[in-house]
Design a binder for these strands. Structure first.
Lengths: 209, 209
DNA sequence: ACCTGAACACCGTTCAAGT
DNA sequence: ACCTGAACACCGTTCAAGT
C-alpha cells in the first residue's frame, strides 16, 4: 500500500487527485477512503479536506478529468460506415479500459455528459450519409446503447461464476440443442457479438450507399 | 424509518430478508446497514447475525430470491418473432422495475445466472425458426445485450443533469444540425430506441419466414 | 497557506454472556 | 433457540489550534 512516511513538501491538489485516481483504478471506488488516501500521501486525513473539500467533491474532480479525456475523438477509415465502426470500437475500448472510473461517473449521473463527444462525432458521420434530426438522434442512441451493453455483458461474463454449466431444468425447453448450450457456456468471443450487433444495426440504420 | 420498538415475538430469517429487501428497493444498497435493519426490526444489531450470518450472506439471500423470481418466463404472441419481442419486453420491464436489487446481483457476479431463464426461452424460439448452436448462442447474446443496455441508458438519461443542453464546442462538428441536437437533448422516448434496436437486430438475426 | 489531533456520529463484526 | 451489550477496527467530517 505504499505507506508514505511524513513528508516535507506540501501536498498539491493535483497530487491528491492523482493518488485518488490510482487507488480507484487499481482497485475500485471502495478503495478510496479518505484515511487511506491520507496515508498514501503521507499526511493527516484532515489535510485532504483543505485541498479538495470532501470525498464527494474529490469524486467530482475525478469525473471531471475523465470527461476531459473522453473529449478526444478520432474516427478512422475511408467510408462513413468504417468511421462509425471505428468510433464505436474506440469507445468500447475506453469503457473497457477504465471500468471503475466510469462506474463512478455513472453513479454521479454523468453518463450523458461522458458520451457527448461520441454523439457529436457520430452525428457528423450520419450527416454525411443523409441521416438528420430525430432519425439521426435515434440511430445514435441505439448505437450507444449497443456499445455500453456489450461492455457490461462481457464484464459480467468475466466475473460470473462459470454460468452454472448445465442446469437441466432451465434448459428443458431448449429442445436438446446441445451445441447451443455448449456455445452459451463457452467463455465466448464477445468481440464477435459486438461486431454482429454493429453490423445488424448499421444495415438497418444507415441507408445503403 | 418505521423505528419499530422492542418486540416480543422472535424475528424470523424471512422477516430479516423481507425487511432488507424493502430497504434496498425503497432506497438503494447503501440504505441497507445492519444497524438500520436492526432498528427496523426492533431488535439488537447482533441478533441479525444469528439469523443470516453477516451482511454479505444476507445479500446472497436477496439475490437468491431475485433469481427465483426471474425464473418465471412466459412468451406471448403467435409468431416466433412476436414471442421473441414479448420476451425482450418482459425482461426489459423487469430490469426497469427492480434496479437496485439487480445492481446487487450484478455486483455479486450473478448477472449470467439471472439471465439464464431468458436465454433458455429465447433458444426455444430461435430453434423454431431454424437457428441452432453457435449461431443461436450469438443471437441470444446480442439480444440480451440490447435489452440490458437499453435500460442502462434510459436510467442514465433519467438521472443525468439535463444533458448540458448545448455545449457549442462539442457540437461544432455536427455541421449545425439543430434538429438533431434538439432531439438528443429531449427527454426522449427510450421505448422507441429499444424497439428500433430490436427490429434491426431481428431483421438481421432471424431468417425471414 | 497548509497542516495537525481530538472529537463526533456512523459503519460491520466478534464474543462472552444472558434467557 | 434466540437475544443482548460491550468492544474493536474501521468509516467521513468538523473544528479549533498550530506553524
Amino acid at each position: 500500500m505504499t505507506q508514505a512516511s511524513r513528508r516535507d513538501s506540501p501536498v498539491t491538489r493535483d497530487e491528491v487527485v492523482d493518488t485518488a485516481l490510482r487507488l480507484i483504478e487499481d482497485h475500485d471506488v471502495t478503495a478510496l477512503t479518505m484515511r487511506r488516501l491520507a496515508a498514501e500521501l503521507g499526511v493527516a486525513v484532515t489535510s485532504i479536506y483543505w485541498h479538495v473539500g470532501n470525498r464527494d467533491a474529490l469524486l467530482d474532480l475525478l469525473v471531471e478529468r475523465l470527461l476531459a479525456d473522453m473529449g478526444d475523438v478520432r474516427p478512422a477509415g475511408r467510408t462513413p460506415r468504417a468511421r462509425i465502426t471505428s468510433l464505436l470500437r474506440q469507445w468500447r475500448q475506453r469503457l473497457w479500459d477504465r471500468p471503475h472510473l466510469i462506474a463512478v461517473a455513472h453513479e454521479r449521473g454523468q453518463t450523458a455528459a461522458m458520451f457527448q463527444p461520441l454523439q457529436a462525432a457520430l452525428s457528423a458521420e450520419l450527416r454525411t450519409v443523409g441521416l438528420l434530426g430525430r432519425e439521426a438522434a435515434n440511430a445514435i442512441r441505439v448505437l450507444q446503447v449497443h456499445v455500453v451493453s456489450s461492455v457490461v455483458m462481457a464484464r459480467a461474463a468475466e466475473r460470473g461464476p462459470d454460468t452454472n454449466p448445465t442446469d437441466p431444468s432451465v434448459w428443458a425447453t431448449s429442445g436438446g440443442d446441445e451445441d447451443l448450450v455448449a456455445a452459451l457456456a463457452e467463455p465466448l468471443d464477445y468481440d464477435e457479438v459486438f461486431t454482429m450487433g454493429v453490423d445488424a444495426l448499421l444495415d438497418k440504420l444507415v441507408p445503403a450507399s
